[in-house]
Design a protein around this nucleic acid. Structure first.
Lengths: 144, 144
DNA sequence: AAACTTGTAATCAAAACAATTACATGATAA
DNA sequence: TTATCATGTAATTGTTTTGATTACAAGTTT
């Protein structure tokens, strides 16, 4: 199992809006870069808009960032596109048997451990901004 | 999207084998505690056996731990039941357009970030042993 | 009014899961 | 030996999630 590529595509969208800020970044333009369907992009743009990361309006072509590039973290995108819910990176088998010592306690024992692991992962995402991503893209390009 | 409950059930199985070490821990016995089908348990037991965590033989009822409880980490179980592959906790959209600055670089930029996040999560799992889990189950039981 | 955009719903195929059934194979006790 | 019970494993099924696609309403611009 894998965390949905919506997350990677969400980052792609935001980086593209930034790097194309002189131009008009429509859903069709983005869709070509991502190589997918414009409706997929519009769905994601709706999520990014709802999370306050971009500005986009019906009928008006193009999206703009709603915040400073350096103030958007990967965690913001991760939450915006809703790939993993709180405390639900790991799923816990729900219906253990209450008559069994292990069955009736395993869930409460495991849950905080799983949550801690998830938080450690999310902390890494909080420490990377879209500015880092965009700069890295530029660096990679210049070294080619 | 969530990481398969195979992981939680794998931990359950090992804890149960330990806490029932005086008795015979058959797939049917485990299945009752987990409240699922014995064939599901046998599949998981096969994975745990392949990973060298338990000993179990065809025709002979019951499984035993193959290692010290304190030397089995949650990460060992996580790898054994194969819920997440290396560097694949996050999926990356594969077919970005190479003619676009962002499209041709985003994948290489994002990949190490995703890997770092995954490793942070896995590090937490490496620092918890099944002994911790079993002790916690006992503690919870005594406080009821 | 025509052409273009975003917003959104409905549909579809593919993949992953977990549950279930079935049965071959191995071990053990009557 | 035969009956019984265990593990090992394959096939099937219903459910859920994804991502792609089509379609169209509603807003904007020329």
């Amino acid at each position: 199992m894998s965390i949905s590529s919506r997350f990677a595509v969400g980052i792609h969208i935001l980086a593209l809006i930034e790097l194309n800020k002189e131009g008009v970044t429509s859903s069709e333009f983005i869709a070509k870069s991502v190589n997918t369907n414009p409706a997929v992009i519009r769905k994601l743009m709706g999520m990014l808009k709802k999370a306050g990361l971009i500005e986009v309006n019906p009928g008006i072509a193009g999206a703009k960032l709603a915040k400073e590039l350096s103030s958007i973290t990967l965690f913001d995108v991760y939450k915006a596109v809703n790939v993993v819910h709180e405390k639900e990176l790991f799923s816990i088998h729900e219906s253990s048997h209450p008559d069994c010592l292990v069955g009736r306690n395993i869930q409460n024992t495991i849950e905080p451990l799983f949550t801690a692991a998830q938080l450690a992962m999310e902390k890494v995402l909080k420490n990377v901004t879209l500015e880092d991503v965009v700069k890295d893209i530029a660096t990679k390009e210049n070294n080619c």
